[in-house]
Nucleic acid binder design. Sequence first.
DNA 1: ATCGTAGGCCAAAGCGCTTTGGATGTAAAC
DNA 2: GTTTACATCCAAAGCGCTTTGGCCTACGAT
Lengths: 354, 354
Amino acid sequence: MKVNLKMLSESLGLSQTTVSRALNGYSDVSEATRQRVIEAANQLGYQPNPQARHLATGRAEAIGIIYPFGEGDLRDVRFGEVVSGITERLAEQNLDLMIHSSRPDRELETYRRIIEGRRVDALVVARTRLDDPRIQFLQERNFPFVAYGRTNSRLPYAWFDFDNEAGGRLAVERLIGLGHRRIALIHAPLVLNFAKQRHAGFVAGLRAAGIEPDPALIIEAPLDRIGGYGAVGKLLALKEPPTALVVDTNVAGVGALRALTEAGWKPGNGMSLIVYDGIPTEIPLPYTVTGVTQATGEASGRAIADLVIGVLAGKRLEDLHVLAQPSIAPGETDGPPPAAQRRRAKAIGEETPG
Amino acid sequence: MKVNLKMLSESLGLSQTTVSRALNGYSDVSEATRQRVIEAANQLGYQPNPQARHLATGRAEAIGIIYPFGEGDLRDVRFGEVVSGITERLAEQNLDLMIHSSRPDRELETYRRIIEGRRVDALVVARTRLDDPRIQFLQERNFPFVAYGRTNSRLPYAWFDFDNEAGGRLAVERLIGLGHRRIALIHAPLVLNFAKQRHAGFVAGLRAAGIEPDPALIIEAPLDRIGGYGAVGKLLALKEPPTALVVDTNVAGVGALRALTEAGWKPGNGMSLIVYDGIPTEIPLPYTVTGVTQATGEASGRAIADLVIGVLAGKRLEDLHVLAQPSIAPGETDGPPPAAQRRRAKAIGEETPG
DNA sequence: ATCGTAGGCCAAAGCGCTTTGGATGTAAAC
DNA sequence: GTTTACATCCAAAGCGCTTTGGCCTACGAT
């Protein structure tokens, strides 16, 4: 019932060799024959057996992602999106995606199993850590992979990551552009890589504008809602509170927003607010919050797939880096600082300035 | 470098046949030889090539799930969890999971490609619809699969689903048990299968307690926050409002909660509230909301994997059904109705009743 | 002594494809 | 007319595994 190469070639009166080569685009088969073959293949619904092909070529035509399940649930919400983006792009190249899961404590063992079985041609390493034994493991064995997140490895490797530094900078630059000078930052502990990067971008943005960061305005807070809530309390208690606030995660952002609201804050009547990743849409608000947005999970997935394809094509690993750029999603929670508002109103009254 | 069967057998001075059979547990090899073989295999790190094995046996030792990307984002948050659960359980049987994605408009084509390529031994059909052409497609071709969600198919098939009816019933029974008689339901449009089922359970629960459902208390609302918000408005406007409320989705639940809060409601001072799936934890609340909870994504995934394994083992499809039972997650938003509270207090004052 | 049998092992034939190393025929070059 | 050179096509050898069918040997039964 299922037609194979032998049947197809017999029905055409050609050898298996010729049919195979015709289908795979070799030049030593005449165009006329190739057309005949392709037509017959469609006619009979011929589909080459991927396993036989794999056995013959050594290529699996699949890539894998090893997913440590049961670890930190909150980060996973995007996993489905990323996977979706990866498969979408891979499908265009007739590559499949295999998902393997492993106990976090037996990850390397799983990696060994997968690469020794050669079930996949390359791997995506998700949830990269700064010092990641998995990266080293793969590098030692010279197995192709793409890291979803940078690590400290000295050797070159392909990676995808978000430009957190640019994001921090983007937020602060926007506020500076609006006229703010006293800009606060609530950030997660700096041992977390993304927090460090966002913090660095924030500080760099300030300095670039000639503003020396005020330590009183830069507050480290635990990565949870309470953290954001408490940090806002400290800021509001200052003798001279900031005119603008950047919160580096939406988790802390929710808490910060709550504290602000309890203090009578409303958009436009005081401090400007920008929250990294925005406030989750599940939270009903009568206004939109200005945020720094990153690429969606699907877009990230597609970018990762492109990197994988590049790796398999043998491109130089040094060239296979994607640093996804964040952007500002304008909302209603930022604007000129109160003082500037007054000044500007005055300027307009005195006729348009140059 | 990579050791194969031939090398292993030569190093043992045995034939490939014997080594293969030893490793695969056939009885026509002596126990002594088997031990020798196993030890040598471990020693040399022998891993059979899965593709060669597939070619020889016809089994892919992998199952697939075809994921229609880009369709409805909100339902996807659990996808990662489900996948995680599936892979976890499959790994125990040395089965891999392949994820394929497809454009929603070309789904059947993708299904054809996968099953004709025989890249997988079975499929999981996600996001089942009531009349699902994919189910029919697979049944016609006699391809093993498990449906994640029931459909209208007449032929037997393996499925996993949530017992929404039980959930609706559970909620109402709890409220009845607390003494409520006037219990309202806010539900999504009944064309949605889950809404129909939860509604049915709700009504059945009422009837079982001898309470005739009051049409004024059963409100269909669009499946969004506004829907829940508006429906509560209608309920509160009634001359005799309900003493308890069940909301059949957490999306509408958020809106409902907002409307209640704006009307001055607090847990314990009026209406009892139960929300299906609970209120998302992202929403900060000073109290917990009583909810109907379903199996986690991971648990569902494991159950689905078990079904797949059952299908591959050739079990009767009629026996391969899992109807996951919901349960009540008690919170602080439900209690006896105001009238009962008074009555009970009185009863206690008059000495304990029988 | 002979036969039957069972335990233990193996040679060889696939599985469905790709690829090497020709073979064949024809047109261009000598 | 013989070479050379292409352009086409093909036979056969794998890829690494499973499995069929059979071959020995030893041993208890006859």
